[in-house]
Design a protein around this nucleic acid. Structure first.
Lengths: 193, 193
DNA sequence: TGTTTCCGTTGACATACATCAACACATTTT
DNA sequence: AAAATGTGTTGATGTATGTCAACGGAAACA
């Protein structure tokens, strides 16, 4: 199971991991399985682990005063799940994270991650991840400030076609910050063209 | 002028910088001054430098099809300016960055930054910055997806009261993803309460 | 000193999107 | 097999926010 993670880390590294490093990593990341619809994190808890997803699909969302869910993050294989803010600051999370498919993941605590940061490959990966994460968030923020719902959807569909297959439409809608009805109408309109 | 930067870096470091490190940093970061309303970066250019702001105020914004500006970032002393995506990926930026006050800053290229990453203090700072940046963006994204314009404004006003003094209202509005008229109405309404 | 530009406010009106409700269909549960 | 639940669609209506236009005052400019 860890081989996916090793492969993933190597894809960021200038030098591939050696045997002892692989061993250490494999011993540090703890496997965990969750059935569909189970919580990985609930609002109010501190997020103790970051999860590398080996197989499956998850979502992260907040719930507003009216009980409406707002999805801030969707993730599948080779992505990470977890609330960075809570994980880094050790504060209670305002988000829920749960699985949408049966999911296998590899967990790591903040402390263990700090240990592993001895390894150059890990440091490189972590930096690169942070960078990519920031860039992606920046793009989404710009989209959400400056683009119409329709444009946000088409851009999303281009960028992440696989997500359209894996998640139901109302989750995509929530992720885009619109209602399922609006997304439905956008789609039928787009087809006419 | 570099002393502000040194102080700033030390605030992230477990051990303060020593003499030779300070010297190296001071030699690497290049001072630059810009008058009010001058461009630091224009759409289509690659962002070669990250700028540490010693004094002044800047904004980063995209311009949509209709010519409307959408501010994605505001920054003042002890913040950074620059388009991370362009800086990291070496792609042409879709953003403009300009000064709103006369501004003094310290510039660094990506290559030089990689060199400085030999120093633990710099590495620690960079990581911490990336983390904080991600967290802040995540918060904003969640706000923009799940909160009303009014709530976004009051939260912003609480979080960054100084920005209300330094930037005109129409920029704050743009930053919040609303028009100046809407912000004006929100403010008069809020006062009545 | 006058002139221009910028800034914030207000009003009338437009519109993108939300809300609410009903329905058909598929999937899961019992 | 029946019942319950989840999913996507469509229509009627509501509302937050945008758009356009006008105005007054402040600041920048000439």
């Amino acid at each position: 199971m860890h081989e996916f993670l090793i492969k993933y880390i190597n894809s960021f590294a200038t030098k591939p991991l050696n045997g002892s490093e692989i061993k250490l990593i494999s011993n540090t990341f703890v496997p965990k399985k969750l059935r569909k619809r189970q919580y990985f994190l609930q609002e109010g808890e501190v997020c103790k682990y970051m999860a590398f997803i080996v197989k499956g699909a998850m979502r992260q969302y907040s719930v507003d005063d009216k009980g409406v869910e707002h999805i801030v993050h969707l993730s599948i294989e080779n992505w990470w799940a977890g609330d960075r803010e809570s994980y880094v600051m050790l504060t209670p999370s305002i988000y829920n994270i749960d699985t949408w498919e049966d999911t296998e993941m590899l967990l790591i605590t903040r402390a263990d991650m700090n240990e592993l940061n001895q390894m150059p490959a890990i440091t490189q990966m972590a930096r690169k991840l942070d960078e990519n994460h920031s860039i992606a968030l920046q793009k989404r923020l710009n989209a959400s400030i400056s683009m119409s719902a329709e444009k946000r959807y088409t851009e999303f569909a281009n960028c992440y076609p696989e997500f359209l297959q894996r998640f139901p439409q109302h989750m995509i809608a929530s992720y885009l910050g619109i209602t399922k009805e609006t997304l439905s109408r956008i789609r039928t309109q787009a087809q006419k063209k």
